[in-house]
Simulated scan of single mutants.
Amino acid sequence: MNAPADRADAPEITLYTSAVCGYCVAAKNFLKSRGLEWKEVRIDLDAQAREHMVAQARRTSVPQIFIGDTHVGGYDDLVALHRSGRLEPLLSGDRA
């Protein structure tokens, strides 16, 4: 489950990543520092997963981060969402 410890019904966090990606590591460290879990999808190992990511995100770079059905974007987008105060509501199931 990809939820804050106090929100078992929170939306799943999905990270599309590749092996050689500093921003992917940064995104995982950011989430880990907040006690969050996520599902990681390695697009460098799965061509179909890459196609799915591009279709959903309309971007080819990694990481691409989704919280539930909401496309957050990459690492910089995740941090910007946090700094604007809109990440916590999204993690709680409210759309940002």
Rank of each mutant, 00 (worst) to 15 (best):
A49H: 03
T17H: 02
K32M: 05
V62E: 00
Q64K: 02
R58I: 00
V25E: 12
N2L: 07
C21M: 04
L45G: 08
T70L: 08
A5Y: 01
V41D: 10
P89Q: 05
L45Q: 15
R42P: 01
S18V: 10
A55D: 05
Y16A: 12
T70E: 14
V62M: 02
R86Y: 00
P11M: 10
A57S: 15
S33R: 11
R86T: 06
A10I: 07
E40N: 08
A5V: 13
P89C: 06
E40Q: 13
E51Y: 00
G22W: 04
S33D: 14
E88H: 01
V25M: 09
L31C: 10
Q48V: 07
T70A: 10
I13W: 03
A3G: 15
D76L: 14
Q64M: 06
L81R: 09
S92V: 00
Y23V: 07
Q56N: 02
E37A: 15
G85N: 04
N2G: 15
Q64G: 04
R34I: 05
Y23T: 06
L78P: 10
A55V: 00
D69M: 04
G85L: 03
S33W: 01
L36W: 08
K32Y: 03
C24A: 09
E12C: 08
E37G: 14
D9S: 14
D6H: 13
V72C: 06
A26M: 15
R50N: 10
L91D: 06
D6Q: 08
H71L: 14
K28V: 04
A80I: 01
G22M: 11
T14E: 14
R7M: 11
S33E: 14
G73R: 04
R50Y: 02
G74N: 09
I65D: 01
V20L: 07
A5G: 01
A19L: 08
P89V: 05
Y23M: 07
D77S: 15
G68F: 01
L15M: 11
I65C: 01
H71F: 13
A27F: 03
A8W: 00
G35R: 09
A96G: 05
A10H: 06
P89S: 06
L36Y: 08
G68I: 02
M1R: 05
G35L: 08
S18I: 12
A10T: 09
K39P: 00
L87E: 07
Q64C: 03
D46I: 06
P11H: 10
P4G: 03
L15R: 03
D76A: 13
F30V: 05
L87Q: 09
H82K: 11
A5L: 10
P11V: 10
D6A: 11
A47K: 14
D77T: 08
E51R: 13
A26D: 13
